[in-house]
Each structure stands twice: as C-alpha cells, then as structure tokens.
C-alpha cells in the first residue's frame, strides 16, 4: 500500500505540490489526471527521489517504509518503479548489462540470490516476447537511438523484469501510436496481481481504456481536487478540466 500524506514540495523555492493526500491500496491501479503544470511529473520525481525537488512537508510510505528517507536506489529495492516520461539515454551501457545489474542489485537488497548470465537471458527473452520486442534490444545501448515507442516499451520491459511492488507510469502513453499503446498496456496489465499496485499518470483518457483504473484522481495546482471511479476519467474527456468547475480555482488550472 502506498500512502501519501500532506506531501508538499518545491523547486528552487517555488511550491509545486501543495499538500497531496493519496492512498493506493495493494492490488489497485489508480490514475492521476491533470492539466499541464498541475504537478503530475513533480509528484512522480518526488516519489522516486530525484535531486532538485525539495520536500517541505508530509510523508510517503510504501508498505510502511518511509520512502522519503531513502536514496533512489533504496526506493527501487523497496519495490518502487518509475517508468520515466522521458527515458534517459545511456551511451556505452548495454541494455542487457544494465537490466542484469539493476535486477541483481534489487535481488541482493531483498536478500535473494543473484542471477547468472544464462538465467538472466532466459528471463529477459521471455519478457521481450511478451512485449513483442526483438531480442537485439538487449544488445543495444540503453535507449540510444530508440524511437519514442521503443523507449516506452523498454521502460515496460524493465518493469516486467524488475517486478516492482508499486509502479508509477509517468505519461507512458505520450508519443505512442495505438498499436504501441496496446502493447504497453498489455505489458502493464500482465503485471496486475493482488500484490502489485500502480499509479498511472496521464493526460488523456485513451490509456485508461486499456489500463482500467480502480480509482481516478484529478490533480491541479499541486493538490488532488477530485477523486472517483473510472467514470471520472470519461467525464473529464468529454467536458475537459473546465467542465469539472476547476476553472473556479484559477491559479491551479492556469
């Protein structure tokens, strides 16, 4: 279970998150929607522990573990996974080496045995098949020369291999055509099980047709303004953020 309570954060002294309260129970998938500048990406970076974001208040716990006290890699070992909106290119770092190093670091932290190259390759190939990705993906450098769709699929591949407890998908649908979107959505759905939960951050309803959320939250001005079932996403799609009466909040929608 992910619990966010009263979370406030700023960048260079400018408040971005103004008190987020959000609970995602284990086994559920929640969606966060919101206009540009509402704080969606800030929330995902703060949860993953990126430098440059100052948490000024509140707490975040994953199954009781205080995430904010941990280094980024410790959060990953604790079971948190962020699928980046803009996956980073790592020239000179092979995808296979990267994935195996990440997997073994996580396994070590969890007290599990490390995988050797053969075991890893078996696991990785299976994951590639599920995501309709070619084997040579493993030989390429991480995200270098990848198309937008390939980068997003690579994020989902990493998620499939690292098997996190809790995943944040930060606008994973942006830049994807409909076929790629389905593949990515299927990849996420394949991970859905009682002990897995996720937060899907998106701008559009479209992704939520394929990854059906248990709950939908609307973020604006650094706060959760509405919460509801999947129907809330559809209502947003039809009437826009303005249709929800959010325009009255002026500062938050602009």
């Amino acid at each position: 279970m992910l619990e966010i309570r009263g979370l406030t954060a700023e960048i260079d002294g400018k408040p971005i998150l103004n008190g987020i309260d959000l609970v995602v129970p284990t086994g559920e998938v929640h969606a966060i929607m919101g206009p540009n500048g509402s704080g969606k990406s800030t929330l995902s970076y703060v949860l993953a522990g990126r430098d440059g974001y100052q948490v000024t208040g509140g707490e975040v716990r994953l199954d009781g573990v205080d995430l904010l006290a941990l280094a980024p890699e410790e959060r990953a070992s604790a079971g948190l996974f962020l699928a980046f909106q803009y996956p980073v290119e790592l020239p000179g770092v092979g995808n296979a080496n990267f994935l195996r190093t990440a997997l073994n670091a996580t396994r070590r932290a969890r007290g599990e045995s490390e995988l050797d190259a053969v075991q890893f390759l078996k696991l990785a190939r299976a994951a590639l098949r599920d995501l309709a990705m070619a084997d040579d993906m493993l030989k390429r450098n991480v995200n270098v020369g990848f198309s937008g769709g390939e980068k997003k699929r690579n994020e989902v591949l990493q998620m499939a291999i690292l098997k996190p407890k809790f995943a944040i998908l930060d606008e994973t649908d942006s830049g994807l055509d409909i076929d790629a979107l389905k593949i990515v959505a299927n990849g996420v759905n394949a991970l859905r099980r009682p002990e897995f939960s996720a937060l899907v951050i998106t701008h559009y309803q479209r992704l939520l047709d394929y990854i059906v959320p248990d709950r939908v939250h609307v973020l604006a001005g650094g706060r959760i303004l509405r919460s509801g079932g999947p129907e809330l996403a559809r209502a947003l799609e039809e009437s826009g953020y303005a249709g929800l009466g959010l325009e009255a909040l002026g500062e938050s929608v602009s």
């Binding site: 980024p72 890699e73 990953a76 980073v88 790592l90 190093t101 932290a109």
Partner: peptide, 16 residues
Amino acid sequence: PEQLFYLRARGIPEAA
C-alpha cells in the same frame, strides 16, 4: 545527473 538518477531509480547503488 540525469543518467545517474535513472540508474539509481532502477535500484543500482550510487557507486556502482
């Protein structure tokens, strides 16, 4: 720093 964060977010300790 972007690359470093990406690796750490995948669970790889900073020194590694």
